[in-house]
């Protein structure tokens, strides 16, 4: 093997290597582990708080041993961490951790996503006769995470408003005992990432929008569900959950 890949391999192995000075190699090896732990702690702050700093360092060490960086930007490294955690023994003890990690990653990605343009005037077209064929466009940063565990309450217990953390923690414990899952929407309004717990009807509605279902058909689909479009719409507009209303012709659909 040539010098460059040989050195990279020696650093990644975390073992001594006859071709390289031991002390120098150890510096690079320690630096790699420190960078990995720091990077993952920024991308997965909830997981770090759940398992504690020391355990998190061990997890990041084990993770980088099997998942080398490929992007040159530490912020982009670690996408597969939730799946890796699901196969890790820690998930036997804390089975909600992989889904908490999935939420962390979506939050992290949302922070870095491209900015969204809001076409507020377009919502006036909802009053038009042909509005039922139109499309509500969701915020391009919008993502959904669904879990069998109370990931919203766990997240809020660690990152929410200080006064409400205990309340969310108690709710999370109760839901864990009751095996109650949660679905979370994540999106960015200007520079701030929002997360919101949604119940099944709103989740279904958001999926209809994300699948570019014409408004009339979407309303028809959801009509038997306890979902109030009239109250949802103004909030969705003001919170930038939706960014535009597009009228389409029949040939467009």
């Amino acid at each position: 093997m040539n010098y460059q890949p040989l050195l990279m391999d020696a650093i990644a192995s975390q073992e001594s290597h006859s071709d390289f000075d031991r002390g120098g190699l150890e510096i690079y090896q320690r630096n790699l582990l420190a960078n990995a732990a720091r990077s993952l702690s920024l991308s997965y702050p909830t997981v770090e708080q759940l398992v504690g700093e020391d355990s998190f360092k061990i997890l990041s060490r084990d993770f980088i041993a099997v998942t080398s960086p490929t992007q040159g930007d530490w912020a982009e490294w670690g996408e597969s961490f939730p799946r890796w955690l699901a196969d890790h023994s820690i998930a036997d003890m804390y089975p909600y951790i992989p889904d908490c990690a999935a939420l962390d990653w979506q939050h992290h990605q949302c922070e870095r996503a491209g900015n969204t343009q809001i076409n507020t005037e377009s919502f006036q077209l909802l009053a038009e006769e042909e509005a039922e064929n139109g499309l509500l466009l969701n915020n391009s940063t919008l993502k959904t995470v669904t879990s069998e565990y109370p990931i919203f309450d766990i997240w809020m217990a660690h990152h929410g408003v200080e006064d409400l953390k205990q309340k969310h923690l108690a709710q999370a414990k109760e839901k864990l005992d009751n095996k109650t899952g949660q679905t979370v929407l994540i999106w960015r309004k200007q520079w701030k990432v929002h997360i919101k717990r949604v119940l099944a009807p709103e989740k279904e509605w958001v999926n209809l929008i994300r699948n570019r279902t014409p408004l009339g058909l979407a309303l028809e689909t959801i009509q038997n569900e306890p979902f109030a479009f009239e109250s949802w719409l103004p909030e969705a507009i003001s919170e930038h959950l939706i960014t535009e209303f597009q009228l389409t012709t029949h040939t467009d659909t």
């Binding site: 460059q4 890949p5 050195l7 990279m8 391999d9 650093i11 990644a12 690079y28 630096n31 790699l32 960078n35 990995a36 080398s68 960086p69 490929t70 992007q71 040159g72 530490w74 490294w77």
Partner: peptide, 16 residues
């Protein structure tokens, strides 16, 4: 910083 290991371009995460 870049090297090919196991037929994949990887980043060293450090200045080597």
């Amino acid at each position: 910083t870049w090297g090919e290991l196991d037929h994949q371009i990887r980043h060293a995460g450090d200045l080597l």
